[in-house]
Design a protein around this nucleic acid. Sequence first.
DNA 1: TTAAAATTTGAATGTCAAGTCAATTTTTTA
DNA 2: TAAAAAATTGACTTGACATTCAAATTTTAA
Lengths: 204, 204
Amino acid sequence: MSLREKKAALKREEIMESAIAIIAEKGYHGTTMEDIASRLLMTKGSLYYYFKNKQELVFESQIKLLNESLGHFSFVEKMKANAEEKLIKMIQLHTEHLVYNKAGFELMIKPEEIFTEEQINEIYRLQEKYAEKYDVLLKEGIKDGSFNIAEDEIKIVRNLLLGALNWMMQWHSLEGKKNVEDFTKVITKYVIRIVKPELSSVTH
Amino acid sequence: MSLREKKAALKREEIMESAIAIIAEKGYHGTTMEDIASRLLMTKGSLYYYFKNKQELVFESQIKLLNESLGHFSFVEKMKANAEEKLIKMIQLHTEHLVYNKAGFELMIKPEEIFTEEQINEIYRLQEKYAEKYDVLLKEGIKDGSFNIAEDEIKIVRNLLLGALNWMMQWHSLEGKKNVEDFTKVITKYVIRIVKPELSSVTH
DNA sequence: TTAAAATTTGAATGTCAAGTCAATTTTTTA
DNA sequence: TAAAAAATTGACTTGACATTCAAATTTTAA
């Protein structure tokens, strides 16, 4: 990649980030290309030099986020650990990723309203890939006796677990919070119970 | 209420229901007044005889759903039962309500993109009211020893619990499923663990 | 039956924002 | 430094859709 291309790529990143931030405030349809441009002291027209259209601009940022999520699994799969330790690590990574990219993830909730069919399919494909990796982990935990889940309810349990986590984008706010690490520990403590419901002590 | 008014009220219900169904398919912004009208064999213009505008049409249906949810609590609060039994009942009612009104609830996820500030505040007010009732129930369950939650983590736990449930609107589909009652039982079994993590037998 | 009220119609209006593009300015490169 | 390439501009086009409204039609009630 030439210097020129690197600069252009950087500008694309900058635009995507800014766009996501504005869209987080005002929604996809509430955000105009004009809004995105002016925040970066550009004009609407030059956005089209970097992106084919508004859809593409936003779509690329979604794919980036999803690939980062999949990257977490690549990391965890290399761990020398049992299913429970791996799942705990995934819950932590998922939580942190979500908390720091709340705005970006919100667009994934109803992609139908925004993207083309091909784009939606690509998003679903990556989401499915991510979800399946949880299923593998749950199955592993059932086998080694650490998770107490019925085999034919794995998908339901995975959805409940990811639901508890993903819903954070609706209520969590970074402002005025103690550090994210502590927060993540609390989340993990309760969420892990869905699959491993033994009594654990809670400090009052 | 006169017969005339009853008929008009019924028509309003009919329009709201149809609108919600179409919006569930195509999204709020993807659904035109034309779409809503033609599905009911009306013309666009007459929708405005029943509703001030598109926003109001959709807003009213949201309020209706939220009031139904609050109604569940009125029912449960009258039960002669302990906190655990009440929470289980609420999880059941919440699940069923969501499953049968998936489409309607989806619009509540990002009200910022759709409604006016006053409308959003009203939606938040009702949601808050609903959430607080869970907090009361959780506190009650801590006191009587059935729930194992730290007092200062109640809100987090409530959000995780409601998140696990609400996320169903993303993945659950009524098609090709056994009856909802059985489904609800499975959901309850796992979700209750978040607050009450004792080992329960799972049939394999 | 008929006048009043309720309802429906569809054409017209207005707004808003996405996307285009030829011309201009800036940056690179040789 | 001069030609070429890259980047930016902003005015313009276009289409979509919400909303309005006067006129027509249908329903109600006396």
